[in-house]
Design a protein around this nucleic acid. Sequence first.
DNA 1: AACGAACCCAACCGCGGTGGC
DNA 2: TGCCACCGCGGTTGGGTTCGT
Length: 440
Amino acid sequence: MSHMSTDSDNGSVALKHQSESNSMDESSSGGSISGGDGNLKKGPWTSAEDEILLDHVKKHGEGNWNAVQKHTGLLRCGKSCRLRWTNHLRPNLKKGPFSEEEEQLIVELHFKMGNKWARIATHLPGRTDNEIKNFWNTRLKRRQRAGLPIYPPNLTQTRQGNMQTNELSQQRSQGFGDSIFERFKVNSESVPFTSQVLDSSFGNMLNNQGLGYHTSGFTTQAGDLLKYLPGSETVLPFVDANATYGTPTYEQFSLQERMYRPLSRDFPHDPDPGRGKSVALADVEPGLSGVYPVVNFSASQTQNVAEKSELPSLQYSEPLLGSWPRSSSASLEVPDDYVDSPEMVSTRNNGLLEDLLLQAELTSGRNRAAEMIPYNSTTSLVDPVNACRTNLGGRSADPISSFDSSAASLMSPLLPSTSESPLDGEESSSILFFFSLFLL
DNA sequence: AACGAACCCAACCGCGGTGGC
DNA sequence: TGCCACCGCGGTTGGGTTCGT
């Protein structure tokens, strides 16, 4: 591992307490003094270092982690100090193995949120994101090896025959998360994919679940992905109405529109997209609450409300922008579970492009382009877009960047033109225009 | 007892967002 | 407007421990 840190946390180094730090039991800790990086120490923390850090936080509070180094002479970069404090020293940390309830909660939350460790951690007081991440990775590996599904049946049973939410979750959380690859399941022989997202072991696990993913030789580059878009009837999930994995029909799109429109009214003015839209949906379309026509359209499949309440939010993200099943979160009773949900695609515009897009959509009176694009599909086509989302974490009140929805619109000209295409010429033209803007 | 594999977990790294200048 | 420092997040690594043969 490189000892060269590129992190800007490594500022000037105060060496006034060099001797103090050097007196620490570095030999036993395996720590080292990095050479070319301001003599910052790496490796395990010693108890003496912990004390210094604790003392500093007591005096100065959290934050300004680089100041720790300056004030105390601790030969640790600010980032390392923050990590140590967050994961080990801060009060009310819960140590020890996860309880059964905690484990169950983690599984459920991961089912809903994917690898949003920080967000998951907010639901487990005293637990850190790192802890949860480690737990999950270990669990994943274990279950994978045992040939067990990632999620328990009670979480997944309601979408058998549809999009496998756990894979979707995993894909999404690892950067794809996209129904676009549903078609690759069908054409897995001809369209190999995933090297970076679905590693071979995970791919094997998917195969164990009968998904038939191929895990070699797929690049995440948008250009390569786009090669498959135009003219390919099997790339986008809603294009092939005969697909096995729950492809919405045209009629279902109509229903999507019904669901979406009331929401769209609220989008531009919604100060709190999560809760606000939830209310809006329930108010406007109570009959749709808990009904998931977009994905769960299998005629042979009926679901009761209880089942639906267990469905993961992300399961429905792809086909219908802004039509999240908001009433389906009862199982967790966590008010901000939706924050990471794709329905949180916000039209609270953060940028000019989003303004333009929104305005264009509104003035066109159709407002259909974005909603017709599988949200995650588009975001994974454009890496920067996905990057925007993956780094939102808990810091932003707008967890799913409006950039995503913009990208969704922007990518729509790339959709195959079929009889079921929601785009007419006028829409396509305006979208092409904005796509050009985007490229600029 | 020895060895390797698997597991666990702390720490690091790179990246992106944010805010101040 | 651009630069920079700071911060937080998610992915990854590496070392210690436990387990199985």
